[in-house]
Amino acid sequence: MIGSRVFRLAWVLIVCVVASIEGGCRSAAVIESPDLNVRSTPPLSTESLPQPGTVTASLPPGAGMETVRSRCVACHEPAMLRQQRLTAQQWMVEIEKMQGWGAAVSNEDKTQMAGYLGTIAAPDNTRFTPAIVAPLSAERSTRNAAGQR
């Protein structure tokens, strides 16, 4: 237990040192929300937030990026791919599932795509954070639901 606590405290110090190097704890532009790992730049106002459905993520460059972009993002926002933490083997299973469901993926594509996704969204992936967006608006929810009120 003592060893574990010492180790945790060591991590605290390391994180603080890293934050200091990047511009000081208090002045750092990005604050990590601890339990949800949300990045935000306070202060926030609801008016300044993107509406739900706004695409905020993109695919990082790399071999296979174009193939993944052209085969996957018609149905899946890049954030859905970037939040995963899967091995190349697990990615292959997912790609083959989509292939079976009609995705235009050749066997040549599969290897390239699994390699790319297994790199940008591998089991040690910690780079994804959810986007902070505005609450749902009543107008958005009811604009095609005339007659309910």
Binding site: T46, L49, V55, T56, A57, Q83, P130, I132, V133, A134
Partner: peptide, 16 residues
């Protein structure tokens, strides 16, 4: 002190 907000995991399909 932050604004009321949701956390978006996917813009399409929408997952908040």
């Amino acid at each position: 002190s932050e604004a009321r907000h949701l956390l978006q995991l996917s813009g399409y399909p929408l997952d908040l």
